[in-house]
């Protein structure tokens, strides 16, 4: 396997072919924040919180560390005023959805992000896609997927699959940084699994949802 030498925050770092900047940095104890990254899943590069500065061929670029391949001669900076500002803004954008998500709160403290900078959005999903990708890549079920696009993009359980596959799995629940997923699941369950134990126990007795 090819060994490569790159520079991260002034440190010479050895990396092998196929490694990302994130992996190379972590191998020497340099931490880069991530949200949509998961070791069991293919790199996705959606949340952009891992954005770092890369200098190559005389040009400086902002790239996501979780997908950008490590290469010889790269000069990487994981912190700078510009990077911190970018991460702060990305956090503030996410906090408008999930102001109380623990993962976001911790990062907000580090980068000085203001949870109230933007008006609150109705959905608290930050669309990291962990659930969707875990279900597709690890469980190979695709019981949860993305629908629509742009600001209308959301995750949704596919009732036909979810009603068969989810009841004894729920491995995606702990992955969700905002617990939106559980709500989405229970909503699907309530609306689309007429025979589920959930409905039998809840709807007959105490009124729920909005009561």
């Amino acid at each position: 396997m090819n060994e490569m030498l790159l520079q991260i925050d002034g440190k010479e770092v050895k990396a092998s072919e196929g490694m990302t900047i994130l992996e190379a940095a972590r191998s020497v104890g340099i931490s880069i924040p991530t949200l949509c990254h998961h070791e069991k899943l293919n790199p996705y590069g959606a949340c952009r919180i891992c954005t770092v500065e890369v200098e190559a061929g005389g040009r400086t670029n902002f790239v996501p560390a979780c997908i950008y391949p490590a290469a010889s001669g790269l000069v990487v900076r994981t912190r700078s005023e510009k990077i911190d500002k970018t991460r702060k803004m990305i956090l503030e954008l996410m906090l408008s959805h999930a102001p109380d998500a623990p993962a976001l709160k911790d990062l907000a403290k580090e980068y000085g992000a203001d949870r109230d900078r933007f008006e609150k959005e109705p959905s608290f999903c930050i669309l990291c896609g962990l659930c969707v990708r875990y279900c597709a890549e690890v469980k190979k079920k695709s019981a949860v997927g993305f629908i629509d696009r742009g600001p209308n993009r959301e995750i949704n359980f596919i009732p036909e699959i979810a009603s068969k596959e989810c009841w004894n799995c729920k491995e995606c629940f702990p992955l969700c940084p905002t617990s939106y997923l559980q709500t989405a699941y229970h909503l699907t369950e309530a609306l689309a699994f007429p025979s589920s134990s959930f409905l039998r126990t809840r709807l007959r007795g105490t009124p729920m949802l909005g009561a």
Binding site: R48, T86, L93, M94, S96, F118, L127, G129, G150, P151
Partner: peptide, 21 residues
């Protein structure tokens, strides 16, 4: 652009949403 963004990455999806607002 807000209609046409695919919505995958945060800066584009959320940034355009906020700029439009």
């Amino acid at each position: 652009l807000t209609d046409e963004s695919c919505g995958k990455c945060t800066p584009c999806r959320e940034g355009i949403r906020q700029m439009l607002k």
